[in-house]
Design a protein around this nucleic acid. Sequence first.
DNA 1: TTGTAAGCGTTATCAT
DNA 2: ATGATAACGCTTACAA
Lengths: 335, 335
Amino acid sequence: MATMKDVAKATGLSLATVSRVFNSSEKVTEKTRKAVLKAAEKLNFQPNKMAAALRSGKSKTIGVVVPIIDNDVFSSAIKSMESYLRASGYHLIISQSYESLATEKEILKNLMNLQVDGIIISVSKETTNLDHMKELREAGVAVVLFDRNLELIEVNSIVINNFNGAFQATSHLIEQGCKKIIHLAGKESVNIFSERARGYKAAILEKGLNFEEKHIIPFDEGNPDTLIYLEELFRSVDRPDGIFAHGDISALVALNILKKLEISVPEEVCLIGFGNSPFCSYLSPTLSSVNQRNEAIGKLAAETILQEILSKIDERVYKQSMLPPVLIARGSSSR
Amino acid sequence: MATMKDVAKATGLSLATVSRVFNSSEKVTEKTRKAVLKAAEKLNFQPNKMAAALRSGKSKTIGVVVPIIDNDVFSSAIKSMESYLRASGYHLIISQSYESLATEKEILKNLMNLQVDGIIISVSKETTNLDHMKELREAGVAVVLFDRNLELIEVNSIVINNFNGAFQATSHLIEQGCKKIIHLAGKESVNIFSERARGYKAAILEKGLNFEEKHIIPFDEGNPDTLIYLEELFRSVDRPDGIFAHGDISALVALNILKKLEISVPEEVCLIGFGNSPFCSYLSPTLSSVNQRNEAIGKLAAETILQEILSKIDERVYKQSMLPPVLIARGSSSR
DNA sequence: TTGTAAGCGTTATCAT
DNA sequence: ATGATAACGCTTACAA
């Protein structure tokens, strides 16, 4: 592969001049510029980015770390990060932590060794502080947290407002006339799920409905016991007339139960999920859900890291962004 | 950040010896080894991989190019590529072509400039030949195609056997006693879909059922007309008793129609989809489907590219792998 | 086993 | 505006 040296030789110019042509900012005569470009074209010269990175200290590379890539939340976010950052001349190195702090640490070390300019990371479930990222900060590597936040102020972070999403969903059910709304809850230990439960409770209370702790039902969609419990609940006389599920799969499972019991949705029971999965539009009735805006999160994460990379290290300011989700009302909750 | 030079200085050894310690293969006394490691530890030395890459010509980087990352087929494949390749000391640079040949070309050029050791690619729909990959080959970059194949012999490729998957699915329906099976077909212009239609037809013929062209129904799950047509079909007296859908969403839509018409599944009509989407297990009845084995494909692609990278350029042999999909029989087709 | 030194392909500083 | 040259941090003959 041709190098700058070859181009210099071919044009009779110096290596330095050739380099200047490709880093446009510098002053070069239009004439020499053309000569260089022509020679480069003929030799099929392509600048070696590794060499440039080594010399300049800027790799134009962003490391992206997620628990697992095979998950809509992450793949959608990465999708928009990639488009945005590629357009700005950056490329993405992607790694998976598999929810392990040890792996996460190793990955971060690795990314440092690769001289990445920035790191966008959704921390593992085991990660409770950012000690392992101090080195990054010291090395001047920009860092943006997304999806999961550690409530720490000295770093950029971008998350969805789960509380607000749940609040919207529950309020929507109330507006549809539901009086007795239950929440099919996710594991309480998972922050996003407890936030959703909080949002549900807040909406119930604020709108003057009767909140009862037992209306928050720990729900594991794969567990037969939970299914049986739900079925019994809906067989009872004073059954609920609204369901806010912590996820779309939970909502789907609930929908199946309702159909089995011949309870009509949305006429007798309104139902809304969370996540806005692709299949929502194809269920019958179509399933209302809360859009988590994964792509918006990815885009904002990309914008934020670029900002940080391009700003002087001692002038960096860190911001915590919390995006409001968007309620997507469909058939299952529209009376 | 500390460099090898610093470690050399700290230990009183030469740069070369330090380098040897970190490239284990070479002969170094256990004593000096320990001294180096200790000093490295204290200085918090981390080898600069860019420098190593530049010097050695091996970047330990694999470029992965997909039409879009936000798609189960690709994200699952990438998931397993990442685990496998990271374990072998490689990292992944991921780019999206958005089904554009021009973008794909640009990405490949970019990846070359980044000195990647290999490229795993699912080509765009616009890509009809591999001319733009010749340079890669000439530069000694290993290439593995996956998901979509161009029927060219001089390159590694890994795809799923769609024909076989469809054949399995259709045969399964026949074994369940179905006599009149229709196929909800995808766009014929898309290779994987036409292959599935072929597999369907082959199974029908081979098992001695009556094949009719009109049983292959072009099916667009978002189009109301197709839905109406299907509904009418199932209202007729000699309605079908088996459905093989080209995708899980199509199957889901069909399932909704059957439920609406109060046709019981699988008793009156057996149904099977393709893709084995996560939601299959949560439908009622659970949806049979054909597992495309995205992770297996990803793993094989990773193994293949490693093999190619590690083999001498003039000894490289290219193989076309076609993985058989796996039938996942669930409630919708189990009598 | 260890050291010396050249060089990977750029960028950037200093002259000219 | 252009050129000479050092340097980025490492690998790798070759020499000792």
